[in-house]
Design a protein around this nucleic acid. Structure first.
Lengths: 192, 192
DNA sequence: GTCTATAGCCGGATAGAC
DNA sequence: GTCTATCCGGCTATAGAC
């Protein structure tokens, strides 16, 4: 996997276009035009469409890890770090109302296509799940940590889904407030 | 809109195929083959792909209304009727893990395609929202009824999304139990 | 109403010149 | 590495026979 400015540009644009328009609906021609290269050049970097998808998922994994690491480095404590996760819903609200959650919508589309990369896409969710479970563990949730992580992941997915269907921004803010209230009810053994 | 056995068969198969494979990925040829007719015959009944989508959405609206009416006719009281809604997650768990929620995934796909029928698809959610709001109103939730309806709709969407990504049936059952517990915490003024 | 045949376009993918 | 040119197949959609 050699570093190449063109290759990086392709993956970056494909990432955006897959999110905004869906994987299948995004053609090579669309990506090539967005990058500003010919279709022929495209095939020098990626043999098949699945190769691009693979690269996009890899990119998303890397960026997700980097984001989680950055949150981890912030000295907010587990509760503050979970809030960082929750507040993505507010920060990205406009794009969520237009296109849904990037991870959830990709997983769903790949499921319907019965695509080979299904599980790799779900691994992005896995990064969030494991990181959140780590925070809940620090809060003292013990064995319930992973269930709580999945619950919170699921909650955010539901908010994204309904927000997309109804383009309802107040709904997002109301639900985020609800999540914060829920989080506040959890005991914190880390403050002792 | 004349009644026709062939037309009905087309809409019925298209409904299933759109759900299982997605709207855009499902071709006329696929539907025609599933129904057992030629593509030419197809165009006698539907001029464009959007026409089929319209018919599918109309069909889903009708079937949703019928289902909600049936639940309403059951004499369980508002809390029992809300449980009927929740238990769809269990009853349809296998298909949800494979293809997600029929309504949510359609709305999301149409959003990405920036499709004209986006709002009509969201109207199916609207039927559930309004019906659920009616139940919460009966429970005495007053002005909070619609927010509670959207919250429950969102919750079920989140469960469907995560269940699809991880194919995790125990997760579905755990979350359904969580929803039931949440429902039990709501006061009921209808029993007086 | 149902069929066959076909137009015309666009998708992914390849070959080869520069 | 980048381009142009091109192949092949599947797609939506139409025309017209039966």
């Amino acid at each position: 996997m050699p570093e190449s400015a063109t290759r990086n540009a392709i993956v970056e644009k494909a990432d955006i276009l897959f999110y905004e328009g869906g994987f299948e609906a995004t053609s090579f021609a669309t990506i090539a035009a967005a990058v500003g290269i010919s279709r022929g050049n495209f095939y020098h970097h990626f043999k098949t469409k699945n190769d691009i998808l693979d690269a996009v998922i890899t990119r998303r994994m890397e960026r997700t890890r980097a984001m989680l690491d950055a949150w981890q480095a912030g000295s907010d404590g587990p509760r503050g770090r979970i809030l960082s996760f929750i507040h993505m819903l507010i920060a990205n609200r406009t794009r969520i109302m237009a296109f849904g959650c990037p991870v959830g919508t990709l997983c769903t589309e790949l499921a319907k296509l019965d695509h080979i990369a299904q599980d790799r896409a779900a691994d992005i969710f896995g990064l969030f799940r494991d990181w959140l479970a780590g925070q809940f563990l620090e809060l003292g949730a013990g064995e319930r940590s992973e269930a709580l992580a999945l619950h919170l992941l699921s909650w955010s997915q539901g908010v994204a889904s309904i927000a997309t269907a109804f383009r309802d921004e107040p709904f997002i803010r109301r639900e985020v407030a609800g999540i914060e209230a829920w989080l506040a009810t959890l005991p914190d053994i880390s403050r002792s």
